[in-house]
Structure formats: structure tokens, C-alpha cells
Simulated assay, not measured.
Amino acid sequence: MTVAVPAQAALDYFPCRYGRSRVLFRGPRRRLDESYIGFLGGTETYGRFIETPFPALIEHQIGFPCVNFGAVNAGLDLYLHDPAIIGLAEKAQTCVVQVMGAQNMSNRYYSVHPRRNDRFLRASDRLQQLYPEVDFTEFHFNRHMLGRLKQLSPERFNEVVLELRIAWVARMKHLLTLLRGRVLLLWFADRAPSDKPVSDTQGDPLFVDRAMLDALRPRIAGLVETPLSDPARRHGAPGMIYSDFEASAAAELMGPQAHEETAAHLLPMLRELLG
């Protein structure tokens, strides 16, 4: 009998849980009985392959506890379906919420895993009627499924993207209401937000454009776009820590310099919010 052994990650993330949440966050585990800044977001906030991600850099520079509630491939569903983390985020002095893609959340066309939001679970009757030629049991990841749908019919695919955009704005408004507007929204990407609707299935955050961000402005303390330098935008940049097994995943992410520049952009606004 052959036993599969998971590959060992090159970087120790000291995974930990908070409250009754079942999600493993990046540690070391922080105390929550004092004032802190909460960071919610996806892979970049978690800091995959990054020894000191931007939440930790900010804590070092601002001298204020920062709790990393980021999760790899997180979408909005991870937070909206986890009252324990929402409660802890609400207690934070302020929160930084990374703009996450619109593909990793359940909607009228398909359902995703409640914690591993990038995992495709099932297609709704609506999606099966829209794409009767597709066997949806072949898909395990949302992006793979969406890429195939676009390839088959860009016209029908635009209907799916429209639903995702509408659902994303509504769900973001709900999240920001729960956090009582004490939020800095962070655009962490290798490009600026598009001024036109986006239907490309490459790049992150998927399908989010400037008009969608503008719809959230009344509910946030500020939007921080990070105009990263050319070296910082490089994917698979030097300084990342990963094993040979993780090399392909690391090649899709920006490196330590992107985190350093992001922290530098966030610091002035956080200092202002903290008084």
C-alpha cells in the first residue's frame, strides 16, 4: 500500500485559530484582549511564501498590534459565513480589508466551499441550463470552471460575470456594514483597477473594476491603491521562501518588495485613523 505524505512547506506560518472559527490563520497567535488592527483578505494578506508580510511590517513600524485574519484563496464567503471572525474583526480598532476576487463566493450560478472558497462545489440549475453541454463534475476549482465557460461561449459567460459583479458589491456592502465602516479597503495587485468591466479570467482580484469600488466609498474610511514599482510587480520575485513543490504557486505571486511598498502606502492612513 502506498501512503501519500503532504509536502512540507519551506516556510513555517505557525497556523492558529481564533475563537470558535475553524479557519487556520497565519500565526503566531496574537492576544485579542487589547486594541489591535485587523487584516482581512486573501493570499497576499496571509503572506504566502513571504517571511514578513505587510501586516507584520506595519506592526513593526507603527508599534500597534496587528492581527492577520487573511487566508489563502479567501473570498467574501469565508468571512460572512464565520461569525467568530466577524466578531473579532468588529472589535478591532480599525480593519484593513484586501479587495478579494468575485469568483470565490457562492452565487446564483454555482456554490463554493465555505472555507476553501476557491473550490467549486456544484452548479445551480440556472448554470446547467445556461451551459447544457458542460459536465460540471469535471471541475474542482472556480477559476478552471470559469475559464472553460468563457472558452465555450463568451456571450453566455458575460451573464455569469454580471451576476458575480452584482453579488460581490452586495456582499461587500454587507461586510462593511458589519464592520461599521471602520475599514481601509486595500487594492493589492500588479495593476490599477480597470475603468471598464472586466471579464478576463487571469489576474487578481478577478472581475472587480473601479465602478464596483466606487460603489463602496460611502461605507469605508478610505481606499488605498498601491502604485507598485516595476520590480515589486514582478511575480516570483527574489526573497520568497518556498520548496520545489511550491515553485509553480510562488511564480504567480508578488514578492517581499510588493509587501514593503504596500505597508508604506498603508501606514499614513492607519496613523491618521488611530489618531
Score class of each variant (00 low, 15 high):
residue 181 G to W: 07
residue 212 M to L: 04
residue 111 S to M: 13
residue 140 H to L: 13
residue 202 Q to H: 08
residue 227 P to W: 07
residue 163 E to Q: 15
residue 230 D to Q: 13
residue 184 L to S: 09
residue 157 F to Y: 12
residue 151 Q to V: 09
residue 119 R to E: 14
residue 117 N to Y: 04
residue 234 R to F: 08
residue 125 D to W: 08
residue 101 G to D: 01
residue 153 S to Q: 06
residue 201 T to P: 02
residue 186 L to P: 01
residue 130 L to M: 10
residue 149 L to T: 03
residue 183 V to N: 07
residue 233 R to L: 08
residue 136 F to R: 03
residue 109 Y to V: 02
residue 173 K to P: 06
residue 123 A to Y: 00
residue 171 R to W: 05
residue 222 G to V: 09
residue 141 F to W: 08
residue 115 R to P: 15
residue 185 L to E: 04
residue 121 L to K: 03
residue 217 R to Y: 11
residue 213 L to F: 02
residue 148 R to N: 12
residue 145 M to R: 02
residue 161 V to I: 14
residue 169 V to A: 09
residue 153 S to G: 11
residue 174 H to Y: 04
residue 223 L to Y: 08
residue 99 V to F: 03
residue 223 L to H: 10
residue 122 R to Q: 14
residue 103 Q to Y: 09
residue 116 R to V: 14
residue 235 H to C: 15
residue 134 V to S: 04
residue 130 L to E: 03
residue 168 W to Y: 11
residue 117 N to E: 05
residue 170 A to E: 14
residue 231 P to W: 09
residue 202 Q to E: 07
residue 115 R to Y: 12
residue 209 D to E: 04
residue 165 R to Y: 08
residue 193 P to K: 01
residue 213 L to V: 03
residue 198 V to N: 00
residue 122 R to M: 12
residue 125 D to S: 14
residue 221 A to L: 12
residue 185 L to N: 06
residue 191 R to Y: 03
residue 121 L to A: 07
residue 229 S to W: 09
residue 209 D to N: 06
residue 190 D to Y: 01
residue 173 K to F: 08
residue 127 L to G: 00
residue 210 R to T: 04
residue 114 P to C: 14
residue 107 N to V: 07
residue 177 T to N: 10
residue 111 S to L: 14
residue 169 V to I: 13
residue 225 E to C: 12
residue 131 Y to I: 04
residue 197 P to Y: 00
residue 125 D to I: 08
residue 158 N to V: 13
residue 153 S to W: 04
residue 114 P to M: 11
residue 193 P to G: 01
residue 170 A to K: 15
residue 193 P to R: 00
residue 221 A to C: 13
residue 179 L to E: 05
residue 145 M to H: 03
residue 231 P to S: 11
residue 164 L to A: 13
residue 106 S to C: 11
residue 231 P to L: 10
residue 122 R to K: 15
residue 116 R to N: 15
residue 125 D to G: 10
residue 115 R to C: 15
residue 140 H to W: 10
residue 147 G to I: 03
residue 118 D to A: 15
residue 154 P to W: 10
residue 111 S to Q: 12
residue 161 V to N: 03
residue 186 L to E: 00
residue 199 S to E: 05
residue 108 R to L: 06
residue 174 H to C: 06
residue 215 A to R: 06
residue 135 D to Q: 11
residue 187 W to A: 00
residue 186 L to A: 03
residue 191 R to A: 08
residue 171 R to F: 06
residue 225 E to P: 07
residue 124 S to L: 03
residue 187 W to Y: 01
residue 222 G to F: 06
residue 212 M to V: 00
residue 190 D to E: 07
residue 129 Q to N: 12
residue 161 V to E: 02
residue 191 R to T: 10
residue 196 K to R: 13
residue 200 D to W: 02
residue 188 F to I: 00
residue 236 G to R: 11
residue 115 R to Q: 15
residue 185 L to A: 09
residue 111 S to W: 11
residue 205 P to M: 02
residue 212 M to P: 00
residue 176 L to S: 04
residue 193 P to C: 01
residue 101 G to Y: 00
residue 168 W to V: 09
residue 205 P to R: 01
residue 193 P to W: 01
residue 154 P to G: 13
residue 192 A to K: 10
residue 133 E to G: 05
